[in-house]
């Protein structure tokens, strides 16, 4: 995690923002045995903190918005694939995947006043949205503390607060999925979250076949939608984080449909398996690249 903030109150603001991120990580991590999510997955019903409650509620809304492409109940499936520390990556049997899929879907998650209740076979993993939520909260804290210029980087998620100190736009590079030391272009932004989901970020190989970590909960297998990476730009960090996963799962064509209905909420840069770049038209002025790309109209 890096936070660069400018201004007279920036030092304390950065400390407060870092604390918030660490607290949220403790609360929302699926791996940390002391986290609320870990306990909830074990107990299946419990009173949770405001943050956990609101993020689960929001995640259910995002499940609906994305027709289930974004799904926090993917935990049992990801577990079968061994995508948690201490587990070994393996291709699960068909039966194992079918069993794991039984508890998957937002309708297995019930939220009341302060409690969350999961069905017997349901477990949550907020990994595809927790970083976004954390950067959103950290951004609020920076702004409340009078920071007007900052850039945060949270494990590949980037958040710009305001502009650069000199008033210029921030330059955020989009990683080249074939070689992350390079980039395929740059986004000129202010006050935006930029989140990328790519199959290159976590994967394993078995019998010459590559299996990545972004699971399509409709099939229980890594999403095979023809994309190498999706980068989402939005005012809303949580939305950007969830959508980067959802659009990756959906693939280019279905993502275009979602964009035409929600072009005020987000923009996106897609890189396909055959290395073509597609950029939504609301990012046309902010995306700079030496490579050719196609523009997606609303």
């Amino acid at each position: 995690m890096t936070i660069n903030a400018y201004g007279s109150k920036s030092e304390n603001a950065v400390k407060a923002a870092q604390n918030e991120i660490n607290e949220l990580d403790k609360l929302l991590s699926v791996q940390n045995k002391d986290s609320e999510i870990y306990k909830l997955n074990y107990k299946k019903s419990m009173t949770v903190s405001k943050d956990t409650h609101s993020l689960i509620t929001r995640s259910k809304e995002l499940y609906t918005l994305t027709d289930g492409a974004f799904d926090i109940s993917c935990e049992p499936v990801s577990r079968e694939w061994g995508f948690y520390s201490g587990l070994e990556n393996k291709v699960p049997s068909k039966e194992a995947i079918e069993n794991a899929l039984e508890g998957v879907g937002a309708d297995h998650i019930k939220t009341e006043d302060n409690t969350v209740t999961l069905d017997e076979n349901t477990s949550l993993d907020l990994g595809a949205v927790a970083k976004g939520y954390a950067s959103q909260k950290a951004t609020e804290i920076l702004k409340e503390n009078g920071v007007t210029s900052a850039l945060m980087s949270l494990g590949g998620n980037v958040r710009a607060v305001g502009t650069k100190p000199d008033g210029e736009l921030w330059s955020v590079a989009v990683a080249d999925p074939n070689d992350t030391s390079k980039s395929i272009g740059t986004l000129k932004i202010s006050d935006k979250a930029v989140v990328t989901s790519g199959s290159y970020q976590r994967y394993f190989e078995e019998n010459g076949q590559i299996y990545h970590h972004i699971i399509d909960t409709k099939t229980g297998y890594p999403a095979n939608s023809g994309l190498k990476s999706v980068t989402v730009v939005s005012d809303d960090d949580t939305l950007a984080d969830a959508l980067s996963t959802a659009l990756f799962v959906k693939g280019l064509e279905k993502s275009k449909e979602l964009y035409s209905k929600n072009s005020l909420l987000f923009g996106a840069v897609f890189i396909t398996d055959d290395n073509k770049i597609y950029v939504t038209d609301n990012l046309n002025d902010s995306f700079i690249s030496t490579q050719s790309y196609e523009v997606i109209d609303k």
Binding site: G155, P165, W170, A173, V174, T231
Partner: peptide, 23 residues
Amino acid sequence: LPNKVVIKFENSSDGVDAKAGAV
């Protein structure tokens, strides 16, 4: 910030401030 002065090294990498996606 008050006097809007910035002193920085010339950027060799096209002035990129951060990279999205590189974990």
